[in-house]
């Protein structure tokens, strides 16, 4: 469960990235977070990941108030979330296998379990045959899939993705979205930030629409055509 209760985020620079945002995402739900660039999508995800803290209002994850979470407990929260970053955040000083194994090592899994789970996750994104390679030598789409494998390897209850299809062609994008959908079907709460409206329209899931930091749409599966054209401009 992810819940925002009148959340405002103001950066030190004075810029208000989110203003009075409220919504609730049930456990096992899948939703899109959309809006033009700079609308506050990344900030919203950062608040969930505790990379930032809300200036006002409350963010709840699993009935846990994030404002009350001490720095010591932040790592435990992050272990509950698989995050697919726009820029992959992969480490190029180690193999694909070691990149995907990182969340398991961090969480203290036994090495035997690690091997099994990493291969399972890599198999899932169809990159098992490249486990020994350096991610730097792989294509952008493959790097993105390694990022997804790493996000799901410890079977987290939440999966967050920030523009996961940002620089991929439509076919690859559709496949990645299909993958997220499959994770959702087995119970993972999925929140995908994207501005790929065509993709969203095809997926028939709930959409949270941000504009200049405010939540202007919540729930509609289909984009209002007015918003649609507005966002095409950006």
């Amino acid at each position: 469960m992810i819940r925002f209760d009148g959340v405002t985020k103001r950066y030190d620079s004075g810029q208000e990235a989110l203003s009075d945002v409220s919504f609730e995402l049930d456990a096992g739900e899948m939703a899109f977070l959309t809006g033009h660039s700079g609308a506050g999508k990344s900030t919203l995800l950062k608040l969930i990941m505790m990379m930032e803290r809300a200036t006002q209002g409350e963010v709840w994850i699993d009935n846990q108030k994030l404002a009350k979470l001490s720095a010591r407990h932040v790592p435990l929260l992050r272990r509950k979330m698989g995050v697919v970053h726009q820029n992959h955040q992969l480490l190029f000083d180690r193999s694909v296998y070691d990149n995907v194994a990182l969340p398991l090592i961090v969480a203290g899994y036994h090495s035997r379990d690690i091997g099994r789970r990493v291969r399972g996750a890599l198999d899932k994104v169809n990159l098992l045959h490249k486990e020994k390679m350096n991610p730097q030598t792989l294509s952008g789409g493959e790097q993105q899939r390694i990022g997804i494998a790493r996000a799901v390897v410890n079977k987290p209850p939440f999966l967050l993705a920030d523009e996961p299809t940002g620089n991929l062609d439509p076919t690859l994008s559709a496949e990645i979205m299909q993958l997220f959908k499959e994770f959702n079907q087995v119970g993972v709460t999925v929140l995908v930030a994207t501005h790929d409206l065509a993709l969203i329209a095809r997926m028939h899931h709930r959409s949270l629409i941000l504009r200049d930091g405010a939540l202007v749409g919540n729930g509609a599966t289909k984009m209002p055509s007015e918003t649609d054209s507005n966002m095409d401009e950006t």
């Binding site: 456990a27 509950k80 996750a121 198999d123 899932k124 079977k155 087995v186 119970g187 993972v188």
Partner: peptide, 19 residues
């Protein structure tokens, strides 16, 4: 492969708690 690989343990408790 979803159901076989990731579904098995998820379907039981929805995996909401940390591992």
């Amino acid at each position: 492969k979803v159901n076989r690989r990731t579904g098995e343990s998820r379907s039981s408790g929805q995996g909401i708690s940390a591992p």
